[in-house]
Design a protein around this nucleic acid. Structure first.
Length: 576
RNA sequence: GCACCCGUAGCUCAACUGGAUAGAGCACCAGGCUUCGAACCUGGGGGUUGUAGGUUCGAGUCCUACCGGGUGCACCA
């Protein structure tokens, strides 16, 4: 039997002991110990419980200890003002590792989770601004699925705004005069820029563009066909990048803004029926008391413009209803820019007031900060333009190839290209994933490509090094997987073994909070502990049970590193 | 003006319902390879956690005020 989440298991035992000691509703609050001398885990809950009971913390701790059932599992002692320090027995750690065929198992209760991420604007080429949502969202999706949840990806691409009238008109008129649109669309960014310039400069063109929007939304077949052509090209461009990035998104996950078009009148009707709709300055609005404007006056959520057009608020309300009711989500996670925080606060509030969501669904916005250059200003090209994602990835791969070539471990161009791709893309993704999602993030090529510190190359290196141990020792991986971990005589072995068993709790926590950097920090910890183990514990030069045990630790470490990086959407190579 | 986010070592970042002496990497200094990959490991210096108060056994974390930075606030998305 696998215990799965080790921390939860220990916490349950401590909580039970607290209850037995007379402290009801008092969680054990078990955490990883801050220092090795405090054991592997520590229980912090005794002091809080003692406070409520007006008891002396250390006396309560002594009572809890009497009731605590961790015989054969751990050594527990009272420390400081009333902590319980929990040190897992070596024999028990070994047994746990040996019992587990995999270090990650499905969570206890499976949910249907809708994850809204990436969502680029199809009017433009994908650029660095889209990378955070795409990468963080995709890592979250992978972790959710690994825990056995039913995940529904929703790529809410922007394909329905005013600017599409402009693009379609430009495309149509170009088609007449300059031939194939396909060649022009080879550079989406350029196409957008020139059509925007024309839109701003040529009033006649602008008027035709506005008419095209009306025609588009009214379902005019000709305009619609041109628009579809444009959307298809843009989506193909996105898909190419998704594949280069190694994300799991496919065109089947695209649920565009336009797909909610037919539901929008119904949203307005529902709001009217609920008595939530008010007209203000010709626009249809929802006013909620909790939202105030500049002078403290009521602030509306505008759902229909004075000209009858709908807005992205309307679309998002329709999306809430679709996800809550049609998709029957238990949880909807939105990974978007922090600037949209207020928007989603309003949407969730209006949806709740109007009953667009269901009782059980949890609507959660996971904001992230901006991407900055090393100078602390928004990340731009030297010329001040947006950095295209494709060019960013080109540079990442080129830098990685240079590193790998310089290293000299790989000789054929195929191997160098393969490793360059894996390391370059991995470095970019990991740099983003390893930082706290909510803060702005400084994009620094040198730091992310470094083979030192908390980077993807360091973790990939650790993995490659383990592969070389197997190769050099002529170890058959199949049989090594069955070797028992036995003696954990060295502290470094104990530390590594304990770290390996923590994958489950870390992934669960990452998913609970939408914070993939927990997993990154953990993997770095595993790699660091492996390096220390490797330094002091001979593996191939040891013998008998000890050799088998150490090889087994290597197998498990490789599994955690590869598997953990895989959950982040990052690949490994056997040699680099 | 109002609201939200942020402020931690020279730099980039951690710190898990408030827990023990605030931790890593880079950079700097000193060590360690005839031995499984030294892109590694060991040790050292470096902090009034923006400022001032408050809450309590205990505050980077919670509350209040201020300073500094970012973002948002009526028909774009």
């Amino acid at each position: 039997m696998s215990l799965g989440n080790l921390r939860d298991f220990l916490e349950q035992r401590v909580t039970a002991a607290l209850t037995a000691a007379g402290a009801t509703d008092a969680p054990g609050v078990v955490r990883v110990s801050g220092k090795p001398e405090f054991g592997d885990y520590q229980a912090n809950g005794i002091m809080g419980a003692a406070k409520r009971l007006k008891a002396k913390p250390r006396e309560l701790a002594a009572t809890v200890l009497e009731h605590l059932d961790l015989d054969g599992i751990a050594e527990v002692e009272i420390a400081g003002p009333g902590f319980l320090n929990i040190s897992l027995h070596n024999a028990w750690l070994s047994e746990q590792l040996n019992q587990r065929s995999t270090l990650l198992v499905a969570a206890v209760s499976s949910q249907t989770v809708v994850v809204d991420y990436s969502a680029p604007n199809l009017a433009k080429e994908m650029h660095v601004g889209h990378i955070r949502s795409t990468i963080i969202g995709d890592a979250t999706v992978r972790m959710l699925e690994a825990l056995g949840h039913n995940v529904i990806r929703q790529n809410h691409v922007g394909d329905w705004g005013t600017q599409f009238g402009m693009l379609v008109t430009y495309l149509r008129e170009l088609d007449d005069t300059e031939g194939a649109a396909g060649s022009v669309l080879a550079d989406l960014e350029e196409f957008y820029r020139t059509s925007k310039a024309k839109f701003d400069a040529d009033e006649g063109f602008a008027e035709r563009a506005r008419l095209a929007v009306v025609a588009l939304q009214a379902g005019d077949p000709d305009v619609r066909a041109l628009w579809q052509q444009f959307i298809d090209l843009s989506l193909t461009h996105c898909q190419t990048l998704y594949e280069r990035l190694g994300t799991t998104l496919t065109q089947a996950n695209v649920m565009a803004e336009s797909s909610y078009n037919d539901a929008l009148p119904g949203i307005i009707d529902s709001l009217r029926d609920k008595g939530l709709l008010q007209e203000s300055a010709g626009a249809q609005c929802v006013f909620l008391d909790e939202f105030k404007g500049k002078e403290g006056d009521p602030l509306p959520v505008i759902v229909q413009k004075s000209d009858g057009g709908y807005l992205y608020a309307t679309t998002d309300l329709a999306a809430v209803e679709y996800r809550s009711k049609t998709l029957a989500a238990d949880r909807v996670m939105y990974f978007t820019d922090a600037r949209q925080a207020f928007h989603f606060k309003q949407i969730f509030a209006v949806a709740a007031a109007a009953g667009f969501d269901t009782k059980q669904v949890s609507l959660e916005h996971y904001p992230f900060g901006a991407m900055l250059g090393r100078d602390g200003k928004p990340f731009k090209t030297r010329a001040g333009g947006v950095v295209k994602l494709a060019e960013l990835l080109d540079e990442a791969e080129e830098r990685a190839r240079t590193e790998v070539r310089g290293r000299g471990e790989l000789t054929t161009e195929d191997d160098i290209n393969q490793a360059g791709q894996t390391i370059g893309i991995g470095a970019v993704k990991y740099a983003d994933l390893s930082k706290n999602r909510t803060s702005d993030y400084v994009f620094d090529w040198d730091a992310m490509m470094a083979f030192e510190g908390n980077t993807a190359p360091y973790l990939q290196y650790a993995y490659a090094r383990i592969q070389r141990i197997f190769e050099r020792g002529e170890v058959d991986l199949e049989s090594a997987a069955d070797m028992p971990v036995s003696t954990l005589s060295e502290p470094a072995e104990h530390q590594l073994a304990n770290a390996l068993l923590r994958l489950q709790e870390v992934v669960e926590q990452s998913v609970a909070e939408g914070m993939p950097h927990y997993l990154c920090t953990y993997l770095y910890e595993v790699a660091s502990r492996f390096m220390k183990f490797y330094e002091v514990c001979p593996i191939l030069r040891s013998e008998g049970d000890q050799k088998a045990s150490r090889l087994a630790l290597c197998v498990d470490t490789a599994q955690v590193l590869k598997g953990g990086l895989g959950l982040l959407g990052i690949d490994t190579v056997d040699r680099m």
